[in-house]
Simulated scan of single mutants.
Amino acid sequence: SKDFTYSTKEIQSPLGIAPMNTPDDQIVISTILRAGLPYHQGFLSYLDNAENAFVSAYRKYKDRLNFDIHIEYIASPRLTDKTLIITDPMLATGSSMELAYEALRTKGHPAHIHVASIIASKQAIEYIQRKMPDDITTVWVAAVDDELDDHSYIVPGLGDAGDLSYGEKE
């Protein structure tokens, strides 16, 4: 968020007026359903004037270890010239993030893209750097783990973020 443009505005609090630095950027927070929902809400707690976008991305397994990523749903405001933050707690291979971005591009071309994850694999970061426009993409990640297992889960990672938030899916 240090890259955002800010201006100071007078904000009325219950007890008086306080100067506050607020972002001038038109921000859209997007998340990849369902794992990203709690993380998305956290961003909204700080960027409460942001618009919202949602993309469903899921793994469709061909067999026990091989899968394709499928996008079935997208809801987004116009993105042209806005700052897009795509949130997903786990960035394992980077494929879901790339496909979510490609789906969101149908809604316009953002001025800047921030990819926000809690844990990422080195492989995913390298993938994002190759596949997304490097001149307007920033990756925000709290931890980088070294490997992926046979199922392309981050090791040690946290496991399935959606299952941890909402319970196992059938």
Results as ranks from 00 to 15, higher is better:
D3I: 08
F4G: 05
Y6R: 14
T8K: 09
E10A: 15
I11N: 14
P14H: 13
P14Q: 10
L15Y: 12
G16D: 11
G16W: 15
A18I: 13
P19W: 05
M20R: 06
T22C: 06
T22N: 06
D25A: 00
Q26C: 14
V28C: 03
I29H: 03
L33S: 11
R34F: 03
Y39L: 13
Q41A: 12
L44G: 08
L44T: 05
S45E: 14
A50T: 03
A53E: 09
V55W: 02
Y58L: 02
Y58R: 01
Y58C: 00
Y61M: 12
Y61R: 12
K62D: 15
D63L: 05
D68W: 07
D68F: 09
Y73F: 10
A75F: 15
A75C: 15
R78C: 11
L79E: 11
P89G: 12
T93G: 08
G94W: 06
M97E: 12
L99T: 14
A100G: 06
Y101W: 08
E102Q: 12
G108P: 08
G108K: 01
G108A: 03
P110A: 06
S117N: 13
I118M: 07
I119F: 07
A120H: 11
S121I: 02
K122G: 08
A124H: 15
A124N: 14
E126M: 09
E126I: 15
Y127Q: 02
R130F: 07
P133Q: 02
I136H: 03
I136V: 03
T137E: 05
V139T: 10
W140G: 05
A142I: 14
D146Y: 05
L148Y: 10
P156M: 00
G157S: 10
G159D: 04
D160H: 05
G162R: 01
